[in-house]
Design a protein around this nucleic acid. Structure first.
Lengths: 147, 147
DNA sequence: ATCTGCCGTAACCATTACTGTTACGACAGC
DNA sequence: GCTGTCGTAACAGTAATGGTTACGGCAGAT
């Protein structure tokens, strides 16, 4: 499906900011986050910009600028992040309208739409079950030195 | 996520072949299926080739060639089709290894892998719940003339 | 008032996946 | 042989993703 890493990187950034703030810092810079994720600061700023539009983070400009959480990690779920960074549906319909003169061509889109709706609903339930608090917990639970 | 229509088209083709066979025909041609899905026969042949590799359909060559089901529609699920036509995972990790010297960079991948594994397991359960028999039933249940 | 650091965003590029299309050899029944 | 269809390679167009450079704008520090 040509999966992308947007949800992963966004979760990484949120967990990083959350931990950074718990260590007493005010704001996190895109440069530091990018260094942790091993990517370019612009990539981080773009993603965090989408999270800001969704009300998950805030940004300050000027000197001493940076990013901070707009909500507690425990109140943010992967569904919030998913909705913020993933626009479209999981499965696409035909790119062109099927033959409406054919029984299958006529009925396939309503049929698949209903089926996909149920499946995506289940996916959303699962995403909503995972908070960023749990993500950070899992991150910190990773063994320091795998043998 | 840049969703594609592969699962939709594959389900369309299977439902079409199934209905065609119930109408007494032996084999379906990629040209007829493509006409119903309003696409190119090569697109259909490519997808059905993947379904053949998965043991869902069979193909005959030579004169009077075409495609037929290798299994009953009732025994084929959307998960079978999904596995046949969708190679990768739903969510991708970072494209480059995160900074292993950072606590978050070190723990994020194991954490997300575990979370994604659970979510994809749920998705697979949902896909396995839908048979192609049900898909065809939903197709035929679509209203003939929406007012 | 200027300096400085970082955001915000545009622009461009390389890579990849998907879909559509043409072309052509291979095969098997007639 | 003739014919119709598969099987597959090859190529093009479109789009998404991720990386990169560039630069204006903002606000606190000096």
């Amino acid at each position: 499906m040509s999966a992308n890493s947007r949800l992963t990187i966004a979760a990484h950034a949120l967990a990083w900011i959350g931990l950074y703030q718990r260590q007493g810092h005010e704001v996190a810079t895109s440069e530091k986050i990018a260094a942790s994720a091993n990517t370019n600061p612009v990539v981080i700023r773009r993603l965090l910009g989408e999270l800001r539009r969704a009300g998950l983070v805030e940004s300050r400009r000027g000197a001493g600028a940076g990013w901070s959480l707009a909500r507690e990690l425990g109140s943010i779920t992967l569904l919030d992040v998913y909705d913020a960074v993933e626009p479209g549906p999981l499965f696409a319909m035909h790119r062109t309208t099927p033959d409406q003169g054919c029984v299958v061509g006529h009925g396939i889109q309503p049929a698949m739409r209903g089926i996909y709706r149920d499946i995506e609903e289940t996916l959303r339930d699962e995403l909503a079950r995972v908070t960023l608090e749990k993500v950070l917990g899992d991150v910190l639970a990773a063994p320091r030195r795998p043998l």
